[in-house]
Write a protein that binds this DNA or RNA. Sequence first.
DNA 1: GCCCGTAAAGACAACGCTGTCAACCGATTG
DNA 2: CAATCGGTTGACAGCGTTGTCTTTACGGGC
Lengths: 338, 338
Amino acid sequence: MSRITIHDVSRAAGVSIKTVSRVLNSEPNVRSETRARVLKLVEELNYHPSLSARSLAGRSSNLIGLIYQNPSANYVVDLQKGALERCHTRGYRLLVHPCEGTDLSSVRDLAGLVLESHLDGVVLAPPLSDSTEVLAELQKHRIRFVRIAPTVDLGAHSCVFMNDVAAAREMTEYLIALGHERIGFINGPPGHPVTEQRYLGYTLALRSHGLDVDPQLVDRGEFTFDSGLAAARRLLSRATRPTAVFASNDDMAAGTIMAAHEMGLTIPSRLSVAGFDDSYVAQVIWPRLTTVHQPTYEMAHQAADMLFRSLGDEAPPKSVEIPYRMVCRESTGPRPAN
Amino acid sequence: MSRITIHDVSRAAGVSIKTVSRVLNSEPNVRSETRARVLKLVEELNYHPSLSARSLAGRSSNLIGLIYQNPSANYVVDLQKGALERCHTRGYRLLVHPCEGTDLSSVRDLAGLVLESHLDGVVLAPPLSDSTEVLAELQKHRIRFVRIAPTVDLGAHSCVFMNDVAAAREMTEYLIALGHERIGFINGPPGHPVTEQRYLGYTLALRSHGLDVDPQLVDRGEFTFDSGLAAARRLLSRATRPTAVFASNDDMAAGTIMAAHEMGLTIPSRLSVAGFDDSYVAQVIWPRLTTVHQPTYEMAHQAADMLFRSLGDEAPPKSVEIPYRMVCRESTGPRPAN
DNA sequence: GCCCGTAAAGACAACGCTGTCAACCGATTG
DNA sequence: CAATCGGTTGACAGCGTTGTCTTTACGGGC
C-alpha cells in the first residue's frame, strides 16, 4: 500500500498532473467540468498532496513558526490556539518552537529551524519579540515575522500589542478610587518587555493622583507563583503594610493571595490584591482575582493574520493594538477603615 | 541571497554531494579527514539541510505528531514538553495537533495530516488514545503510534500509562485513614478513559474498608473548574454532607474548594478536599491541594522514546508503566470531631 | 477564409536531498 | 602476478510537487 500521488489522480481523471495541480491550488484556466472530475477523484482516492514536495517545488511551504519562551502554560496555550485557529482557516500548518533557556545557541538555531523547515514566516512572542539577536538573525535571512507585544523598534516591523501602560494605570487608578493610598507593586524581572511598562502605568497613576512612589512598597518577582509569594511575604511584613497589592501578573498575584492567607489577612477586607493577565488561575483561586484581561488569543490570532497578509504581498498594517479589558472580581475592595 | 544547499557544501569541500550527505547522516565509509573537512564547511557556510527534501527523498521525515484533545493547558504543555525534549535529543521535530471537537471530520483529517506531512509516527494522548476510529484510521494507513494512558486494547499496541485505579484507591484510603467515612466523589465525564478507572479505585478502597458506595455522595463533572464547582455545590448541600471530597481531577477539586469557601466551610478542618493530576493549580490555590501526581511529562517523554525505538526497528516494550506519586498538602486533614 | 487572441491543457525541468549501483583505490590473497 | 576484497567515493535516478514554456482548440474580427 504505497502513497497515492498526484500521478494516480491524474491517470484516473485522464488529465495531466499539471491540471490536477491547478485544481488543487485553485488556479484559473481549468474547465469547471474538468475541475469537478478531478475533485471527485481526489475525494475518492483519498489523495493528500505531500507538503514536502510542495514546499520543495513551490515558493511557499504553508508552514509558519510560533516562537516563544514562556513558562506560563496558559499563556502558551492561548498563543497556540490563537495562531492555530488562523492557520487552520488559511490552510497553514503551525510549528511550535519553545526556546528553552536564554542561551545564544537557541537563537542561532532559530534561523536554522526556519531554513530547515522552509518556514514561510514566524510569529514572535515576548520576551523574544524584543531580542535584538533574534531580530537581527531573522532579518539577515530575510525571514518575515510579526512580533507580539514588543517594546523596542516599534516602527520597524509589523507587530500586535496591547497598551500595558494604560492598563496598569487604569488598574492602579481603580485601587485609588477604592480609597487605597498605600498600594504595593510587585514588579516583573528586569529586561522583560512588559515589566517597565506595567511599572510605568503604576507610577503614572500614583503621581497623577498626588501619591508618592514609595520604594518600600515596590518589590520584584520573576512572574512565577513562588517569586510572587516570596515578594508578597516581604512586602506584607514591612512596617507600613500596603492596603492593596498590585502584582504585575496573575501568578504573582496568586502568590500574594497565598501570602495573605498565611498571614491571616482576609481579602479584600484587610488587603486588596490585583493581578494582570486574566489567566486561568485568576478564576480559580479564592477569592477570584481582579485583573486585567490580556487578549493573548486575539493577539496571536491577529499576528498570524498579519503574517499571512504580508506573505501574500498584501501590505499589512504596521501595528495593531488589541484592547485590554478590566476584570473586576472579589479580590479587591474598599480600603480598610483603620 | 539564496538558500545554501548541499551542492554549495560539496563544491566548497571538493567532494560529491553524496559524500556530504553521508557525513550529515553519520553514515560509515567516509575517511575521517574528509568528514572533518565537510563538517567544517557545513559550519562555515551555516548550511542547514532542507527537511522537505530529506523527507521527500528518504524514508524518514524526522517528524512526529503529538495528537491530543484536551482542554487543560497545563496537561497539554507538559505533554508537549515531554515529547519535545525527547524529539530534541533524537533530532526529530514535533508537530502538535490539537483535535478540537469530537466530530468525525477531525478524525478523517488525521490520516491526512500524517500523509501530508510525511509524519513518521504519532503519539496519541487521551482521550484520543481510546478512540477506535482513530486507531482504525492509523492502522489502515500503517502509521506507527504509541498511546498514552489507554484503557482498551491494551495488548495490541505500544503504550505508556500510569495506574489510575491504584492511585485513586490509595488516595481514598488516605482519606479513610484520616477517619473520613462519608467521602464524596466527583466523577469525570462518561467515556473518558480515566473516568472509570479513578471511580473504580474509589469504590475498591471504600469496599475493602467496609464502607458503602453511597450514590448520594457521587456526582459528576466534565473535568473543568466550573463543572467541579457546580458538582461540589450540589454535593455539599445534600442532607448528609460528606466530610471529604475526592475530585477526580485538580480543576474540579479547585471548584470544590471554591464551593467550600462560598459556603463558609473551612478546609481542612470542616472539609477535606483531594484532587488528581498535580497540575499547576494544585500548588497555587489556598489551601494547597492534596493530590496524585500524574507523570504527564514522563509519559509523553517515554511515549516519544518508544515511538523512536519502534521506528528504528528496535522492538520497544509493549507497555511501560510510569509510577504515580501521592502529594499530600494542606487541603486534607482528620475528620471533623462532630 | 485567414489570422490572431485567449482559454485550456500538457511537457518537462527544476526543487534539494537520499538510495542504488558502479567505479576506483590500495592491500591482501592464492 | 592476477584475482579478490573492503573501504571510499561519485554518478545518477528518483521522491511528488510547482513553475515555465509550449501546444492545442476554439471563436471572433477583418
